[in-house]
Amino acid sequence: MTQAEQEIRFQEKIDREIKIEPNDWMPDEYRQTLIRQISQHAHSEVVGMLPEGNWITRAPNLRRKAVLLAKVQDEAGHGLYLYSAVETLGTSREQTIDDLHSGKAKYSSIFNYPALTWADIGTIGWLVDGAAIMNQVALCRTSYGPYARAMVKICKEESFHQRQGYESLTKLCNGTPQQKAMAQDAMNRFWWPALMMFGPSDADSTHSDQSIKWKIKRFTNDELRQNFVDATVAQAEILGLTIPDPNLKWNEARGHYDFSEINWDEFWQVVKGNGPCNKERLAARVKAKEEGAWVREAASAFAKKRDMKKSA
C-alpha cells in the first residue's frame, strides 16, 4: 500500500470514530503531534505539583492537609499514565523528561504563576482544574485510544478536585472579611492566567486545523475558553467574588458572555520562559532529577544483581 493510500485509510478510520491504537499505522505528523501534546500534558501534571505542594506543610488544618496531599498525589498519578501513553508512541519517559528540562517541551503556563496564599489553593482547584476539565472532557473522545482512555480516569479525578477547590473557597467566602479578601485577591491573580490556559486564539493557533481534522482536538481553543467563561460566571456569583473584567457581560444575541481581550503579550512572554516562576519550576524539576540520579542507579544496579543471582 502506498503512503497516500495508507493516509486515506487512516482518515477514514478517524471519520468513522475508530480509535487509533499503538500498533496501527499513523502519519508521522499525527504521532509527533500526539507526543508533543500528551507529553506537554504530562509535564503540566508534574510541574503543577510544585505550586500546590508548596502549601502542604502550611495547610490550615489536618483535613485540608490530607485533601491536598491526596490531590497532588493524583496529579503525580496522572503524570504517570500520560508518560505511559507517550511511551506507546515510541518515546521513553526519560527522553520526554529530558525534553522538558532542556526547554524543548512545554507545560501549561498557569504553573508559572506563584501560589501565594491559602486561597490560591482553592482557586487553583476551582479555576485551573476547571479550565483543565473543559479541555480534558473533550479529550476523552480524542482519536488516539491510549490517550482517550487515560483521559477518562483523569477527568473523574479532576472534577473531584474542582469541587474540592470550590468547596474550600466557599469556606473563605463565608468566613471573615480577611478570608473573603484573600479569596478575591486569588481570583484577581488567577482569572486571566486561567483563561490563557486554553492557548492562543484560533487565529494564531498553528496546530489547530490539522488536529481537528484528525480528531485529536474536538473543539477550538476559543470555543473551549468561551465555554469556560460561560460556566464560571455563575459559580463566581454564588461565591460573591468579582471577576476582574469590567467588560464581562451577557450577550443575548450570541448566547454567551462577552469578555475582554487577553493580554497576549503576557501570554507569549510566559510561554517563552519569562513568567514569574518559570525558572524556579524548571530548576526544581532538574534538581529532583539530578539529586535522584543515584537512587535510580541503585535501583537498577540492584535489579541486575538479583537477576544474575536468579539465573546463576
Binding site: 508534574v46 505539583m49 510544585l50 505542594g53 502542604i56 506543610t57 489536618l62 492537609k65 490530607a66 496531599l69 491526596a70 497532588v72 498525589q73 503525580a76 498519578g77 503524570g79 504517570l80 508518560y83 526544581a284 534538581k287 529532583a288 539529586e291 535522584g292 540520579a293 537512587v295 535510580r296
Partner: peptide, 25 residues
C-alpha cells in the same frame, strides 16, 4: 509532605506522599 514534587522518581514521589497521607489520617 515536604518531598512532594521533589522525589527521585515519580513513583517514589507518590509513595512518600502516600505514607504522609496515611500518617496524617
Amino acid at each position: 509532605g515536604e518531598w512532594c514534587g521533589h522525589g527521585p522518581i515519580l513513583e517514589e514521589d507518590i509513595a512518600l506522599t502516600n505514607i504522609s497521607l496515611d500518617l496524617i489520617g
